[in-house]
Amino acid sequence: MQTVFSIAIDALAYGMVLFVISIGLSVTMGLMRVVNLAHGAFAMIGGYIASYAARDLGLAYGFAIVLAVFGTILIAIPIERLLYRRIYGAPELTQVLMTIGITFCIIGIANYVFGPTLKTVPLPAQLQGSVDLGFRAIATHRLFAILCGLAVAAALWYAIERTAFGVKLRASVDNAAMAAALGVRTEIVYAVSFAVAVGLSAFGGVVGAELLPVEPYYALRYMVTFLVVVSVGGAGSIPGALVACLLLGGIDTTGRYLMPEFGEFFFYLAVIAIICVFPRGLAGRAKG
């Protein structure tokens, strides 16, 4: 029984970290219909900024997160204006080529500026160490990641489903021309959602840095993981992504605990099974 609890708590923690890191991609892919393979690159930029702010400038952790999120958005603005704007609504292959190109450029620049070594984001004293849950210990920052994941999920769901901006966003996604005709400034809606998505990836990069340490190849190394989460959850669906993360985190953790020699066999088996049954992901909507 203890083992079951233990696996469950690990699965929850891992799943929530996955969620925080991948949700930005779900927003761009689902709501903006851009296959943004440079998602990991933005997460990495966030990680680098936070690492630089906290380690070299000695800023507080919370401040480093804020700086990372806004710094990454600032860097992403010219990229959006000059590059992404051209590929909205373009065929997926064009988007893939463009964004993977951006990824390689960012990897090269990160390698040049920060060097190839690992960078960490030092945690504040409150998040260091571990909490005793009675039957086992869990790292405090994992609990923090779980809370961050829940907060992000709730805030996003509210923003998309319950606010005026969310209505405009959904309208622009479903039919941009019609929404524009009705007076929605679609380019502003797109720019804001892109900024939010980039900010989320940066946030995920920082919060997840304990699990996925920041180094130049971060952007490519975890790309498959991000894409799997989004495709299983259904692009653009917040609850879908959440369920996908918990499910995949659970399967991966259980497999790793009970049969590590099978590697990621069970993880990908589950992915194949889910995609067979739900081709658009757990909560994906048919394309309108």
Binding site: I7, D10, A13, R136, R142, T253, Y257, P260, G263, E264
Partner: peptide, 20 residues
């Protein structure tokens, strides 16, 4: 003797195995 996949990111389950 545990062999874990090269692409492992989360080692908590492995640590639990070690403890057990």
């Amino acid at each position: 003797a545990i062999r874990m996949p090269l692409a492992t990111n989360d080692f908590s389950p492995i640590m639990q195995r070690i403890k057990d």
